[in-house]
């Protein structure tokens, strides 16, 4: 298998795994959210790569181009991923809002310090 042929998917995998690693390994809540966002972004790239057909052009119909033999890439995954991006943004916004509230009531956003304070309660 040619590695360069599936270059996009390697990028997706590397991004996905680094995002997941940040999410699991870091104790800082904001860093966790950054990890989650990287993880989600890798899926966007995955969908967009999947839509591409080699040799195809953007799925826009011009009036002056005639004939049926023009190859278009699939526009549907782009549309799907637009929805997913909106979902991702709202998730991040909600997560950051929660982090602000946590900072207000615990005085910290480090997971182990929060845990210690919860244990005292």
């Amino acid at each position: 298998m040619n590695i360069l042929e599936s270059f996009n998917y390697w990028v997706v995998m590397i991004l996905m795994m680094s995002g997941l690693y940040i999410l699991i390994a870091h104790g800082n809540l904001v860093k966790k959210i950054i990890g989650l966002t990287i993880f989600q972004t890798s899926v966007y790239i995955f969908y967009i790569s999947m839509a591409n057909i080699s040799g195809a052009t953007a799925p826009i119909i011009y009036k002056n181009i005639e004939g049926d033999n023009i190859l278009y890439s699939n526009p549907l995954p782009h549309v799907l991923i637009l929805t997913a991006i909106v979902v991702g943004i709202s998730t991040m916004a909600l997560a950051l809002a929660l982090v602000i509230r946590i900072k207000q009531s615990y005085g910290t956003i480090e997971e182990d310090e929060i845990h210690a304070k919860e244990q005292q309660q």
């Binding site: 997941l20 999410l23 809540l29 966790k32 959210i33 989650l36 993880f39 989600q40 899926v43 979902v87 998730t91 909600l94 997560a95 929660l98 982090v99 509230r101 946590i102 009531s105 615990y106 929060i114 919860e118 309660q121």
Partner: peptide
């Protein structure tokens, strides 16, 4: 206030699951 951390934890796990 533990509701906040519980919600954030659910959010992180839930988003991971949804993705």
């Amino acid at each position: 206030r533990r509701a906040l951390t519980a919600a954030l934890r659910y959010l992180l796990v839930g988003t991971l699951g949804a993705t």
